[in-house]
Design a binder for these strands. Structure first.
Length: 432
RNA sequence: GCCGGGGUCGCCUAGUGGUAUGGCGGCAGCCUGCUAAGCUGUUUAGCUAGAAAUGGCUUCUGCGAGUUCGAUUCUCGCCCCCGGCGCCA
């Protein structure tokens, strides 16, 4: 279990963060449960001390061949006292546990305070939208026979799709292009499990607020005598991003300082229920239940966090510039920054069909939020410190396809292949 | 899925119903003139006292439950690893 020491030591910051995020997290409830827990725990430990001492005396007496009957019955009384506390303490532990895993991350000082969209801060605008408006990607792709959402709606439901023909090759080209680029920069490609146990999922994202966004694919096994909290191993969730299995990968590990940073390029499908987004972005493949993504992920020493955040962001900018997509960087405000993140910069790209910039990915620092919950540390001289974890989209394939198509469609309805992808496609134009 | 073996500190390893062994590595210190070695201490997590230096205590043998005054040891369930068999893309 994650401990509350961190909370007590960072109380002022946490209070401020909760206020700035507009969070309803019941901090005082957590603190009072924690206070009560520590009181009982201290009491219990004093009894354990008594028991240990007495047990030794029993042991010594037994060795000398003395009668231990009386000593044993005295100890039985002590046992009753301990049992009372043993049933009391877990109540508070469960309470603390249910709260502390979901406590929001402390925001980075750079994060603007306020609510979206006004308080989000546009940091940079790069590239000129060549076309201000145009057909949306669904129209373009359906006309070419490369996208079929109707049949997917029939077989799997809304927000699913069949990609066909050259669009599949273009999708794979994008992913491979991103993998190759990151691989050359020293990021290790990783194809992770597409499912994660609840035990680890709750360490990478606050399940209390996040669980509705995930597909749960197996029910907990019924095991007699087991309480809910104890069969966490048996519940699996489909991953909503490769970030999650990448962050869990090194759970419960201790790095030597020289091992860090670790840089990964994860490739996987992402599954999202998109609960609560009814009616939003229903056209085409912009917002779907399943998409493919190459994700950048870094474990680093705490003091290197900023450096690698900048590196991750620079990688994304390089990719967008090579794909020649107009984009802007947006620093998310306190009200828009994800629960487990301390800072997030979205990159939003120009969609002529929508006449607007839309998110293609986001670069985030989780600070030590994930590593504290997953127990990921490194040796720093004679101290063990929690590693910082950072993540950033490299290519979110379906969304990027949508964006590319709208920017690269020609008057005749065919699609020009971006130059960097031509070697992967083996052709420079898609005509359906 | 079945049968067998296993899981002990960062790594390796001993042990057995009564204070968890030793080594390596790491860290701190000491000694020493030669590319190093040696010696000593330390090494999970937490509660607590103190301004601090530093103490006291609990906890840690994969996870959880049971038996017991006491479980690393005995019993049961679960997870994982290794070997064999079966099934299978």
């Amino acid at each position: 279990m994650i401990n509350t020491k961190y909370v007590r030591e960072h109380l002022a910051e946490i209070r401020e963060t909760l206020k700035n995020r507009g969070s309803s997290f019941p901090l005082d409830e957590l603190l009072s449960a924690d206070e009560k827990w520590r009181k009982l725990k201290t009491e219990y430990q004093a009894l354990q001390f008594k028991r240990n001492k007495a047990s030794l005396e029993v042991s010594a007496a037994k060795k000398k061949g003395q009668d231990i009957k009386e000593m044993v019955s005295a100890l039985a009384q002590l046992k009753d006292q301990m049992e009372g506390l043993e049933s009391e303490i877990p109540k508070y532990e469960e309470k603390i546990d249910s709260l502390v895993w979901n406590i929001p991350n402390v925001l980075d000082k750079a994060v603007p305070i306020g609510t979206p969209p006004e308080a989000n801060k546009i940091l940079k605008i790069k590239g000129d939208p060549k076309r201000k408006s145009g057909p949306n990607h669904e129209e373009i792709l359906t006309k070419l026979g490369l996208l079929d959402v109707e049949r997917a709606a029939k077989t799997a439901g809304s927000r699913f799709y069949y990609l066909r023909g050259d669009l599949v090759l273009l999708e794979q080209s994008l992913l491979r292009y991103a993998l190759d680029k990151l691989s050359k920069k020293g990021y290790t490609p990783v194809l992770p499990p597409f499912m994660l146990r609840k035990k680890y999922y709750r360490g990478v994202a606050p399940l209390g607020v996040f669980e509705d966004a995930l597909y749960r694919i197996s029910e907990a096994k019924e095991v007699s005598g087991m309480k809910d909290a104890e069969h966490l191993d048996d519940e699996l969730f489909l991953i909503s991003t490769a970030e999650h299995p990448l962050a869990s990968m090194h759970a419960e590990e201790l790095f030597s300082g020289a091992d860090l940073p670790l840089k990964y390029a994860g490739i996987s499908p992402s599954f999202r229920r998109e609960a609560g987004s009814h009616g939003k972005d229903t056209k085409g493949i912009f917002r779907v239940h399943q998409f493919d993504k190459v994700e950048q992920f870094i474990y680093c020493r705490q003091e290197d966090e900023k450096k690698y955040f900048d590196e991750l962001l620079a990688n994304s900018e390089e990719i967008l510039q090579e794909l020649d997509i107009p984009y802007r960087l947006v620093l998310l405000c306190s009200g828009d920054t994800g629960h487990q993140m301390s800072k997030t910069i979205d990159f939003e790209c120009w969609f002529p069909g929508q006449g607007d910039y839309r998110e293609l990915g986001s670069c985030s620092s989780a600070g030590t939020w994930q590593s504290m919950r997953l127990d990921i540390k490194y040796d720093d001289k004679n101290e063990r410190r929690y590693a910082s974890t950072l993540n950033n989209t490299a290519i979110s394939a379906q969304r990027t396809l949508a964006c590319l198509v709208e920017n690269y469609v020609s008057k005749d309805g065919s699609i020009e292949v971006p130059e960097v992808l031509v070697p992967y496609m083996g052709k420079s134009r898609i005509t359906g």
